[in-house]
């Protein structure tokens, strides 16, 4: 393992089997020689296993019922408002549940998705740069082909 420093950070990767053979061997050599590392490894293992033993979480039944209903898609904004209402408000809302609004996915306004034209904007900048600055060096960057990606 010549390209990486042997640091304690490797212990979790060692536990998770995310090291190559060389790094793994280096860590095991260090573990054999260092009680501190062995202690840390045990602690990290315990913590990791405890997190992994956390049970799966099911959402409330009514939540999934709303999500999975055939022609009902929950309006997120309304849902958030509903959850933040005080208890008396919930009673009123419960009474009106039968009149729940059916809103399609498309009713939720979606922001405009933009992907800047990197090459074009790069040239636009160079064009503006050439005004009041060195012209040829700025224009040269426009004249060469732009290459992005590998």
């Amino acid at each position: 393992m010549s390209e990486h420093e042997l640091t304690e950070d490797l212990l979790s990767a060692y536990l998770d089997d995310e090291l190559d053979a060389g790094a793994r061997a280096d860590v095991e050599t260090r573990l054999a020689a260092s009680a501190e590392w062995r202690t840390i490894l045990d602690e990290v293992r315990d913590t990791r296993d405890a997190v992994r033993r956390l049970p799966a979480v099911d959402g409330p039944t009514e939540f999934w019922a709303r999500v999975m209903a055939d022609d009902t898609v929950v309006d997120l904004a309304s849902e958030r408002r509903r959850r933040r209402m005080p208890r008396w408000g919930l009673a009123v809302a419960g009474a009106a549940a039968a009149a729940v609004v059916v809103i399609g996915v498309v009713a939720v306004p979606q922001p405009n998705r933009v992907h800047p034209a990197v090459a074009t904007l790069s040239d636009e900048h160079a064009a503006r740069s050439s005004v009041g600055n060195d012209v040829i060096s700025s224009l040269a960057s426009i004249a060469v082909p732009t290459r992005l990606g590998r």
């Binding site: 956390l54 799966a56 979480v57 099911d58 959402g59 409330p60 939540f63 999934w64 999500v67 929950v74 997120l76 849902e79 958030r80 959850r83």
Partner: peptide, 26 residues
């Protein structure tokens, strides 16, 4: 759904935020 909710819950730490995350994710 259970997988999504579990990850969302463990990230957010509460049901309200987890439900928002799951709905938006879906």
């Amino acid at each position: 759904g259970r997988f999504l909710y579990t990850v969302a819950y463990r990230l957010a730490g509460n049901d309200d935020d987890a439900q928002d995350l799951v709905q938006e994710a879906l």
